[in-house]
Amino acid sequence: MKWKEESQRKQYGRALVELGKERSDIVVLDADLSSSTRTADFAAAFPERFFNCGIAEQNMMDTAAGLAASGKTVFVSTFAVFGTGRCYDQIRQSIAYPNLNVKIVVSHAGITVGGDGASHQIVEDIALMRVLPNMTVIVPADAVETYKVVKHVAKMKGPVYVRIGRSDVPTISDQASEFELAKAPVVRDGKDVTLIGCGIMVSKCLEAADELTKHGIDARVVNLHTIKPIDEKTIVKAARETGGVVTAEEHSVMMGMGSAVAMVLVENFHVPMKRVGIPDVFGESGACDELMSKYGLTVDNIVEAAHDVLKRKK
């Protein structure tokens, strides 16, 4: 591993505290997980603008809606599994439908939750959120990008879903570049095949690209941090110029990022494609790397998928 590993949650906490200083309209809610999501940092700095809602996520989402309807910019945090499925109706009815200014920033998404097992490892949250009208869906690649995303979404109007993980992730993005919504950065250029990743899988795509070089294959890597609205232009351009696409996500292959990319390609430019992701199953307890390996989210899995795509290209 050539990158430093850092916590996305820590950067979320840091960004929130800065936002709290900059703007008095920022309000934060959590559901008894503030020390894990790091909203506790905001709570310590601005206790009067932090509301712990207890283990009551449905109530938290509607409370957030009421605050937003009264002019507040509301950040709502818990674990991804509880901040989506457990309160889907509240997000749908009271946040997405009225297009209210609520930022749902959830941690502990995907199987890198590890030992807690399938009950806590949501692998279907991107699917749930991307079908909601008005909802923006962002999966930052690392801690640095998480910080930028949080600062950015605070300026946006309307609901946003931001998905971060529990584990420390390799920092592949630089401090200087600005986050642009729905504009997927090409983090490595290449002409033979395109690897599109989001979240922790962007670094794995970069590693896979290095590996592919050894086989004489020049892979392009795209960080598709915004799943919705999706950057059709960059995806189609990559497909056109490289002729094959592999997607990689720490999410079910059913209706996640890879499916979103597939839809773009089907309607715009047909190339061989392969989705790397969690198959249509629930996870289980285990160490992160063991789980990533068992559920097909390794560098080797991406390399293998690239070879498969290249074979079909010919």
Binding site: V27, E48, R49, D62, T63
Partner: peptide, 15 residues
């Protein structure tokens, strides 16, 4: 949903 949403408005009023 309504009471929770009303609570959010009430918290905003207090803030």
């Amino acid at each position: 949903h309504g009471l929770a949403a009303g609570n959010g408005m009430a918290l905003a009023a207090k803030l």
